[in-house]
């Protein structure tokens, strides 16, 4: 059995969107290395409640790495030190006894802090509403075999579709750019026949919405892809760059 951990946590506390916020330091003792990072926060929050203090607000939902809610910037990296994981999949065995862990919310002007570690990511929803869909107005589902799709394209589309919209790409990017998210959502449809009718319009409108939300621009540092829990590839950003320019040049709008 591994030795349990005693840790110092420096956590961002902010009462509401208007509050200035500051760091507070908490000691947590006897933390099992098998706990997830969120379970460690549960333990801390239980104690804060017992002590009559305000527990730390943080987002979480599925706790199995698919909801994309657990937005924590841990020791300078989104979702902490491991690659390809969300915060709920980060285990305390990734830390050492006596460590000080700094936990901050995502920092980006389109992601305003609601409380403590909770940010409002509805900017992503507005980008999806702008064009991240296909329009099927009526009728039954078609026979799947009537639409031949090359296996490679299907795989590539599926890889893009594995984006959970967690916002780690924006959080990691030095410019708070949303290019990886938007490009994944553009690519998953651009690669499939169902996405073709609205392909040009989609990329132009999603890029316009992304810009109006106030995200920064892409400088191809690759930090987004390196920190993405689903390891979405930079090739999707390249595809969106191509699609955007060719859509602007060739569309009638």
């Amino acid at each position: 059995m591994e030795k349990n951990l005693n840790l110092s946590l420096k956590v961002w506390r902010q009462k509401n969107a208007k509050d200035k916020g500051q760091f507070e330091t908490y000691k947590v003792n006897d933390i099992s290395t098998d706990m997830s990072f969120l379970e460690m926060f549960d333990v801390l929050n239980e104690r804060l409640i017992v002590d009559g203090k305000e527990p730390i607000a943080f987002d979480h939902d599925c706790r199995e790495g698919i909801c994309g809610m657990c937005s924590m910037f841990i020791n300078g990296r989104p979702h902490g030190p491991k690659q390809g994981v969300t915060t709920c999949q980060l285990h305390m065995r990734s830390f050492n006894d006596g460590d000080t862990i700094v936990v901050e919310p995502w920092r980006a002007s389109p992601f305003p802090v609601i409380k403590d570690l909770v940010v409002d990511r509805s900017a992503f929803d507005r980008i999806i509403s702008a064009g991240g869909f296909i329009s099927i107005n009526t009728g039954n589902a078609q026979d799947a075999n009537s639409l031949p799709i090359p296996k490679d394209d299907a795989d590539e589309s599926f890889a893009a579709a594995s984006c959970i919209g967690c916002g780690a790409c924006v959080a990691a990017c030095k410019n708070a750019s949303a290019m990886l998210f938007v490009s994944a959502k553009v690519s998953q449809l651009a690669l499939l026949p169902q996405g073709q009718p609205e392909r040009k319009q989609r990329v132009m409108e999603m890029v316009a919405q992304m810009d109006s939300e106030g995200f920064g621009s892409c400088t191809n540092t690759g930090a987004c892809s390196a920190e993405c829990p689903k390891e979405i590839s930079l090739t999707h950003i390249a595809r969106m760059n191509r699609d955007y320019i060719s859509a602007e040049l060739s569309s009638t709008k």
Binding site: G76, R107, S109, K174, G216, T219, A223
Partner: peptide, 29 residues
């Protein structure tokens, strides 16, 4: 673009480990 990108993150991180995910040249263009 630098000015615009700075505006996209008005509150800086207390700790940001850029070296973990990107090459330093790309962050200092």
């Amino acid at each position: 673009l630098i000015a615009k990108n700075r505006k996209a993150r008005p509150v800086k991180y207390a700790v940001q480990d850029g070296a973990a995910n990107s090459h330093w040249t790309s962050r200092n263009m």
